[in-house]
Amino acid sequence: MSKLLEGRVAIVTGAGRGIGRAHALELARHGAKVVVNDYGVSLAGEDTGDSPAHEVVAEIEAMGGEAVVNGADVADFAAAEAMVRQAIDTFGGLDILVNNAGFVRDRMLVNTSEEEWDAVIRVHLKGHFAPLRHAGAYWRAESKEGRQRVARVINTSSGAGLQGSVGQATYSAAKAGIAGLTLVAAQEMGRYGVTVNAIAPVAKTRMTEGAFDTSAMALPEDNSPIVAWLASEESGDVTGRVIEIDGSKLTVENGWAHGPSVSADGRWDAAEVGPSLRKLLADAPTPEPVYGA
């Protein structure tokens, strides 16, 4: 296998199982030194006290790679900072951040509790923000000191966040927020040598097996080659993109874009809005259907 990431240092969050585990192993196969983060929670985010991150590190070491365990709650601001510091102190720097950690608490919107909403938004959205914030501060400082790193961030959105998914309003909102965060971070951090992209992976995991028919779904490891490439120095001209990976199929997501428009001569009269808006909607592309609709 090519050493696409030889000498580079990576953090992968939620890397004890599923897609995150596959990412950590793939990066290590290509030569990266990996901080394997896993908090050790159930599918619903309940503390189990069991982190499989040690097994992933053992697998990486068995193939001749270097890795360490990190047990941080990635949505804890101070713990996320310590995780970034662990990578720097252990391996001498940080080049790659793969934000992957998350869980689901699927409910129809009218059955969703405040606690369920807060928990899912916290782990996905704040759990992307906190590591990105601290990694970004490090990369900015390095750039200002004349040691600009060729840094890469790969976030994890979802088709649920891009097209919506019935019964997953909270998860969809969080994943849509991650897509928006990716766009802004790509623009703000480019000056420091950082690219920021997101993937929308499709795979048979703990998170999908209870919600969908997964019999024909790709395996978690089928999502990881694109992460390895986006983490490499070769990908420097790609940033601010959301890319769906479904087995052997790659799709660049277009996202929100300005469509047909019309202007009034001054403030709109409410009675005139309907006919004008309906004409615009007739000229606009039909939205893709929400999953499960």
Results as ranks from 00 to 15, higher is better:
T156R: 02
Y39V: 06
G64D: 14
Q86A: 12
W256Y: 07
D76E: 02
E145D: 15
L97C: 07
H23Y: 15
G20Q: 06
R105E: 10
A174C: 04
D269I: 14
G65N: 13
K126W: 07
A78Y: 09
T214C: 11
D246V: 03
P52K: 14
T156Y: 11
V36M: 03
P260A: 08
N100Y: 03
P275W: 01
S42H: 12
A160G: 14
S42P: 12
N99F: 09
P289G: 08
S158I: 02
R85Q: 14
S143C: 05
V252Y: 12
V98N: 15
V290Q: 08
V104C: 06
T195A: 00
V227D: 07
D283H: 09
A15E: 13
A78G: 12
E142H: 01
E61P: 07
E188F: 01
I96H: 02
T156E: 05
H23K: 11
R140T: 08
G93W: 03
D95M: 14
V196E: 05
G92D: 04
H128N: 05
I245A: 00
T112N: 01
E115V: 00
A257R: 09
A15P: 12
S143Q: 05
L43E: 09
A15V: 14
R107W: 03
G193W: 03
S42Q: 11
F129C: 02
A67K: 03
E59P: 02
P275L: 03
P201K: 09
A231Y: 08
T239Q: 07
D269E: 15
D237K: 00
R241A: 13
A10N: 10
L183N: 03
I19D: 12
A284Y: 14
M217C: 07
R278K: 00
D73N: 14
T112P: 01
P260F: 09
S276V: 11
K279R: 15
V238Q: 05
F103Q: 00
D73M: 10
F212E: 00
P287I: 12
E233M: 06
T214S: 00
R133E: 00
V68G: 05
A130D: 08
D213A: 04
A28Y: 10
R17Q: 07
A28D: 07
G292T: 01
P285D: 03
D213L: 01
